[in-house]
Write a protein that binds this DNA or RNA. Structure first.
Lengths: 165, 165
DNA sequence: ATTGATAATGAGAATGATTATTATTTAGCG
DNA sequence: CGCTAAATAATAATCATTCTCATTATCAAT
């Protein structure tokens, strides 16, 4: 953390506090590496892959290893501050937070762009359906695959998601 | 296909016909191996992993290789007769058909049991939301993770999904 | 501040699902 | 039958992720 980074958002700071609270309760230790990884992660936005995160972490502290990034990300998920997502490109992506707590994604198969959506009615409906089958929802994943029809964006972003079929 | 297998359901037979129609149109060939794999696949139910399918295919014709199972499954997906799903256990699963065309899944984190659900209202809502963001849906994935609260089932099936956290 | 117990790290090896390669076999068609 | 492209089997390669283990760091108790 020798390098200076910009300011963190209010919500990110809270998530970092929650994370530390979690590790403390679990009897885990506070390390510089985790600090760096959290700092970098919560300054990024969108749906971040391990590689993307690792690449930036490297620029802050080149001695941090891949495994540590993985481990920290898992801890972040376990602590409930971050969610793990798997779209179709073969790797996990993590998102720290969003404007809305529970939301779905629309994934453009042309360019890989990811849009988020939220609808109260949808949430209610989900709970109703789960109740009918006596199922208790912890979290959900709602993904719509299709075309975003945003020509300029499609062309631009395709390159960044070559694996997306 | 030397081994005799039970009868195929009406819908499975149709899917097999559709598959052959697809391969014919694509100029692809009909092989014994694919025949065997289809026969076995459509007699299985639920959300089938490549390994599960391969294990049974082996008992019918031990000379069939892993790669052929993968290739055939991909063809089945391409032909639109089968859907590929990825839940959280690290491998793809395939489902041939369901009572309902478009449906979601409730996945029990305790035991790995997968329930299916369908709701017309949900479908309509999805389309409405997509329209608002000018998004054209090709297919969707709607998964609710939680607990099925089916004690006996939970205990029984946990063994089969050791990876499920 | 030092120690001791234990968690964390880093580097690289290992894993496991999936894909690619390649030599050989087979289907489909004249 | 005989040709040609596609398919197969076996195996190597790939790639994200996890594990191993020797070393280092944290932190509570001394």
């Amino acid at each position: 953390m020798s390098k200076k980074l910009g300011k963190l958002s209010e919500i990110s700071e809270e998530k970092i506090r929650n994370f530390h609270e979690y590790t403390r309760l679990q009897g885990l230790k506070t390390t510089k590496q985790r600090g760096t990884i959290l700092d970098v992660f919560f300054r990024m936005k969108g749906h971040i892959s391990v590689e993307e995160l690792y690449d930036i972490v490297k620029t802050v502290n080149p001695r941090i290893g891949y495994a540590t990034v993985y481990r920290t990300l898992h801890l972040l998920v376990d602590s409930g501050q971050v969610e793990e997502r798997r779209f179709g490109d073969g790797m996990s992506r993590y998102e720290g937070h969003s404007e809305v707590e529970r939301h779905g994604h629309m994934i453009c198969e042309e360019c890989g762009q990811i849009l988020e959506f939220f609808n109260e009615e949808l949430e209610t409906l989900q709970i109703k359906l789960a109740d009918e089958l006596e199922f208790d929802i912890h979290y959900h994943r709602h993904e719509l695959f299709g075309s975003c029809m945003d020509k300029s964006s499609c062309a631009k972003r395709r390159k960044k998601n070559p694996k997306l079929k």
